[in-house]
């Protein structure tokens, strides 16, 4: 463990995932640690999971599944691509991916902000429960499936079945939507929507005009079991 430019460096060529997470679960504030750099992540899974600290963590390279899972408070940045389920069940804090994310980014996220600079694959924001997600590129099919609360901002295109079985989460898409899922519908953008999109883009560090986005929300037609629409559930 070295300290470079006030950041504690942990090299995964020499340390295990267990050692990294145990260190990050320790009393970082008490030890005056505000920044941690993870070197040589080598695509491994479960890095920086379960953090609950006011700390910046920079992962220098590509990483695997569940990176920054269940994050609280921490600001985790991956300087590369990630596998499935980055920032799953995030509660608060910020998780940024400088590259692309595979499936299920920010799945069931309850709070905080997730920024994917590149593309996110299918089911981005699935079952999200209050987090905000900004994707610089496009999202794959059935993104925001059963999304309950929060905002998903897509600067590129959205794949098929966007917002299928959507609850109260709202989706904003700048590019093309290949198709909407069951019970999702396009709605007019309001001033409040444009303000939300501007603020989230600003937080994400992505530059687009909010006026270029469309709003997708739930038609709420499936909120009560309806046997005539049984194939729509």
């Amino acid at each position: 463990m070295a300290v470079v430019n006030s950041a504690v460096q942990l090299d995964l060529a020499k340390k295990s995932v267990r050692e990294l997470n145990q260190f990050l679960h320790g009393d970082l504030a008490g030890r005056g640690i505000q920044r941690v750099e993870v070197l040589n992540p080598g695509g491994v899974h479960n890095l920086a999971v379960g953090l609950d600290a006011d700390v910046d963590v920079d992962i220098r390279g590509h990483a695997g599944y569940f990176i920054a899972g269940m994050n609280k408070q921490a600001r985790v940045t991956v300087h590369g691509n990630v596998g499935w389920s980055v920032a799953e069940n995030i509660m608060s804090g910020v998780v940024r991916v400088r590259g692309n994310a595979s499936e299920c980014a920010a799945a069931s996220g309850h709070g905080g902000l997730v920024v994917i600079a590149g593309d996110a694959s299918s089911r981005c924001g699935i079952s999200m429960k209050g987090c905000d997600i900004v994707v610089g590129g496009s999202v794959g099919h059935v993104s925001a499936f059963m999304a309950q609360a929060g905002r998903l901002v897509v600067c590129g295109d959205a794949g098929t079945g966007l917002g299928d079985s959507l609850y109260e989460a709202v989706i904003y898409v700048r590019g093309k939507i290949r198709s909407l899922g069951a019970d999702a519908r396009e709605e007019p953008m309001t001033d409040a929507d444009r303000a939300v999109v501007s603020r989230l883009l600003d937080q994400a560090g992505i530059n687009h005009a909010a006026s270029e986005f469309k709003r997708v929300a739930s038609a709420r037609a499936l909120y009560h079991w309806n046997s005539d629409a049984h194939q729509a559930y």
Binding site: V17, N21, Q22, N46, G50, G64, Y65, G69
Partner: peptide, 12 residues
């Protein structure tokens, strides 16, 4: 991998 994540979060 999911089980691994849950173990990591709860420190095994």
């Amino acid at each position: 991998i999911k089980i691994g994540e849950l173990r990591e979060i709860t420190d095994w």
